[in-house]
C-alpha cells in the first residue's frame, strides 16, 4: 500500500468533510496571528506585557457588547442601540453612586434598566413587527437624547473604589478585571448558544423563522429574550467602561455604535441569521483593536484612521465570505 492510499486519501476525505465555516474560523485566527506578528516585527513594543494588557483590556467592552449583538444577529438582526444603552445605564449607575447609594444597588439598577430597554426593543420587533434595524436605530437616538438631557454636557467623574473594582482592579495582582468579566461573558455566551435549548432556538429562529414557528417554537419570545440579553450585556459593558476610565459624559457610548456590529460580521456571523458564534466575534474584535493599537504605535495621522478601519471591516468580511464560498465549491 502506498502512502497515497494509506495516508493521503483518508486524510483528504477527512478534510473534505470539514464544514466551510470551520475553515473560515481557522482562516480568521490565522489572519489575527499574522497581523500580530507583522505589527510586532515593525514595532517591538507591540509584544510588551503592558501593551498586550492595554490592547486586550481595550477590546473587552467591545467584546461584551459584541456577544450581545452576536445573539441578536443570529436570532433576528443587529441591535444598533447597544452604544446608547451602555451610556444611559452607566449614567444612571454613576449618578446613583454619586448620590451615595450602595454600589451594588447601582449595578443592579443599571442591569435591570438595560434589560428593560432590551425588552422594549424585543417587543417592538417581535410583537409590533418592526425591522430590528429600525427599532434599535430609533431607540438608540431616543436613549442618547435622554442621556444628554440628564447630563447636559457635564462630565461626572471620580467614583468610589468599590464601584471602580470591575474596571481597574487587577485580579491576583496581574489580571485586569475587564478581562475577567469579558472572558466570563464570552464563556457564558458560548454556553448559552451551544449548550442550551434556548441557544438552539436562537439559531432555529434566525435560520428559518417559518420552519421554527411551524415546529412549535415561540418565535416572539425567543426574539424578545435575545434583545433583553443584548440590553443587559450593554449595561454590563457600560459599568466596566465607566469604572475603568473613572468618568462619564453623554457621548461615552458613541464609539461603539456600529463598531460592535462590524466586529460580529468580521467574526463570521451571518448577516442573514442562524449562523455564527461568540468566538468569531472575539477574534473580530481583537483584529479591530489590534489594528487601532498599531495605528497608535506607528503614529498614523488621525485623519486617516477612519478610512483604515473602514477598509479593514470590508476586507475582513470579504475574506470570510470568500473562504466559505471557495471551499463549498472546490472541496
Amino acid at each position: 500500500m502506498s502512502i497515497q492510499t494509506a495516508v493521503i486519501q483518508p486524510f483528504r476525505r477527512k478534510l473534505s468533510q470539514v464544514e466551510p465555516t470551520t475553515w473560515a474560523s481557522a482562516g480568521r485566527v490565522l489572519a489575527l496571528v499574522v497581523l500580530c506578528i507583522a505589527i510586532g516585527m515593525f514595532s517591538p513594543v507591540f509584544f510588551s506585557e503592558r501593551n498586550i494588557s492595554i490592547t486586550v483590556t481595550n477590546a473587552c467592552v467591545l467584546i461584551i457588547l459584541g456577544v450581545g449583538n452576536t445573539i441578536t444577529i443570529i436570532t433576528r438582526g443587529p441591535d444598533l442601540s447597544t452604544g446608547s444603552i451602555l451610556t444611559i445605564t452607566a449614567v444612571v449607575a454613576a449618578l446613583m453612586v454619586k448620590a451615595g447609594i450602595f454600589f451594588g444597588f447601582a449595578f443592579g439598577a443599571a442591569l435591570l434598566f438595560g434589560a428593560a430597554i432590551g425588552l422594549v426593543n424585543g417587543l417592538m420587533i417581535a410583537r409590533v413587527g418592526l425591522p430590528s434595524f429600525i427599532s434599535t436605530y430609533g431607540l438608540q437616538w431616543a436613549v442618547f437624547g435622554f442621556a444628554y438631557a440628564i447630563l447636559k454636557g457635564y462630565v461626572v467623574y471620580d467614583f468610589e473604589p468599590d464601584f471602580r473594582y470591575i474596571g481597574n482592579h487587577n485580579l491576583f495582582g496581574f489580571l485586569p478585571m475587564p478581562i475577567v468579566v469579558m472572558v466570563l461573558v464570552v464563556l457564558a455566551g458560548y454556553f448559552l448558544l451551544r449548550k442550551t435549548t434556548l441557544g438552539r432556538r436562537f439559531y432555529a429562529v434566525g435560520a428559518n423563522t417559518d420552519a421554527a414557528y411551524m415546529s412549535g417554537i415561540d418565535v416572539s419570545k425567543t426574539v424578545i429574550i435575545a434583545f433583553v440579553i443584548s440590553g443587559v450585556l450593554a449595561a454590563l459593558g457600560g459599568l466596566v467602561l465607566v469604572a475603568r476610565i473613572n468618568a462619564i459624559q453623554a457621548d461615552i457610548g458613541a464609539q461603539y455604535l456600529l463598531t460592535t456590529i462590524a466586529v460580529v460580521y468580521m467574526g463570521g456571523t451571518s448577516a442573514t441569521g442562524g449562523q455564527g458564534g461568540v468566538f468569531g466575534t472575539v477574534v473580530g474584535a481583537l483584529i479591530m483593536t489590534v489594528v487601532e493599537n498599531a495605528m497608535n504605535l506607528f503614529g498614523v495621522p488621525s485623519m486617516w484612521r477612519n478610512s483604515i478601519v473602514g477598509a479593514l471591516i470590508i476586507v475582513t468580511v470579504l475574506i470570510d465570505l470568500q473562504l466559505k464560498r471557495r471551499i463549498v465549491k472546490t472541496a
Binding site: Y203, N208, I217, S270
Partner: peptide
C-alpha cells in the same frame, strides 16, 4: 421554507420541535 432550516444540521433540524421534551 417551512419544514427545515436548511443551513442548520440534520441533528438541529431533527430536534427542533422537541427541545423541551428531550432536554
Amino acid at each position: 421554507r417551512q419544514g427545515l432550516a436548511l443551513i442548520l444540521s440534520v441533528a438541529e433540524n431533527t430536534l427542533m420541535a422537541s427541545l423541551d421534551k428531550i432536554f
